[in-house]
Write a protein that binds this DNA or RNA. Sequence first.
DNA 1: TTTAGAATGAGAGACTCG
DNA 2: CGAGTCTCTCATTCTAAA
Length: 582
Amino acid sequence: MVENTSDLDGENFDWDTEDELEIGNIPLSCSSLTVPGGVATIGSGEAGPSCSKTIDHFVGMGFSEKMVAKVIQEHGEENTDTILETLLTYSALEESPEEQVQHNEPDNFSSDCDYEGSFLSDFSDIDSSDNEDLANLSSDEENKIRPLLAMGYSKEEAAIALERCGRDCSLAELTDFICAAQMARAADGDYPLEVKPRLNGDYSNHKRRRLLECSKQRRLEKRILTEDDETIRLPNPMIGFGVPTDSFRRVRRDIPEAAIGPPYFYYENVALAPKGVWTTISRFLYDVEPEFVDSKYFCAAARKRGYVHNLPIENRFPLLPLPARTIHEAIPLTKKWWPSWDSRTKLNCLQTCIGSAKLTERIRKALEEYPDSEPPMSIQKYVMDECRKWNLVWVGRNKVAPLEPDEIEMLLGFPRNHTRGGGISRTDRYKSLGNSFQVDTVAYHLSTLKDLYPNGINMLSLFSGIGGAEVALHRLGIPLKNVVSVEISEVNRNIVRSWWEQTSQKGYLEHLDDVQQLNSDRLEEYMRKFGGFDLVVGGSPCNNLAGSNRHHRDGLEGKESSLFYDYFRILDLVKCIMTRNE
DNA sequence: TTTAGAATGAGAGACTCG
DNA sequence: CGAGTCTCTCATTCTAAA
């Protein structure tokens, strides 16, 4: 059914070749990183509409409800920065060794987790042995590490920061990196922050002070940093590490050691997010370079998305049959009515809303004014603007219409009627589909898993939606052994459940409705039962990132989009549990 | 009570032109 | 090189009609 057909070059595809074959380089060095938008800057100045919302927000970051309620009572819910700082202080105090013993059993973490744990560990071990060790470093490295030690960072922290950021990194960037790691760790309440019993009882004050300094410093830096800070540039053409029809695709890349799987992970979101968002996402996801791909190279509709993943990229292969790549091929009936002055060959991004019947009526009436000739340029312009904005296609003489849900399903690579029936309204279908993966694109990226897991995989699927990843793997012929799927929408869960049953899946599907339910206990239980997860997939909400959102395009700290941090939290937990159980 | 329609721009990249 | 223009965007919310 599906076979390796990566060698598709002779095909005459319609996309412009000349200047689209060169692969855009994505500068992603530490020097290009801005201040991480991490937890320290969440919701600055945002006054929650209700107290419980503010509580939820911070509880979502891993603080206990009791603690959050207390802090809000003390400081009010207006200034979330103050709340966060106080919470960090309290949680730092709470992790003092005395209490540590009560709720954190000494755990036997191995290397990968160990250094993460040590980020928040005792800083009093800066002694002469550090200086001895430094003798092994080059003078350049030594010059970088020494000031960090002087600032009170541990040798391990300094070394890791240097390793991750590179030799050319400035001191400010190194401290920034360490802060980011600490904040990330502090935000993760479930995670055992300390992995070894501590003998020194006085470090919590160090930690508290350091966390506060970090928080303040980073807010200051955020204010100082202007537009000249480098951000991740989108490649042009947007083909990531390559698409099936591109004969010059990249087959090699370096993945930071901390990111190497298993577990493999695959994270997705809109490419055109506000500035700095992808820098933050990439930094949290172990500094993996995002792969930006426009699905117009896979199907007849554009879909500009960024994917951060640690999958191999050699010998990728596409799903077969290859989907139609022009509007006319995808929806042949439109060809008959397509006017010569509509030059579109691809649709724009498939969104959650469609053009109204009133709009298409207005267009029809405007065109009927000119029954015997082409409409004047002004009318053409009006019609084309609306057609592009609403993705309208020609379905009759002077008649345009929005795409049918069936057509969107097909364009996105889902089986026909995937979202149909079972009490799902038309509006719900549009909404679910508009929020989904483009299956062919995702499948192309995931295809390298087939050789790695011939017997199937265990998958953790966060923000599953209508199951784009599940469908992609199934169509690739990769058996789904155990799938834990987290999806807030009941409509979507029903769609996936129904697909699961209709495709006679042999595996086991577990549904959760909220990522908050996925704490370390629950996760460990699943992983004990299934023997770990091979793949962690997720496309966290884009509401606050997408350009279409007029009201709350608040960036990664927005109400829904901040759930990205839950993706990171859960992925990091999976990584640590897997490493420990090795 | 439910649902369709309309109103609501900004932000960022690509492109053009002098 | 810089200013101006064009293009596009996994949406939310209010209102009126059904």
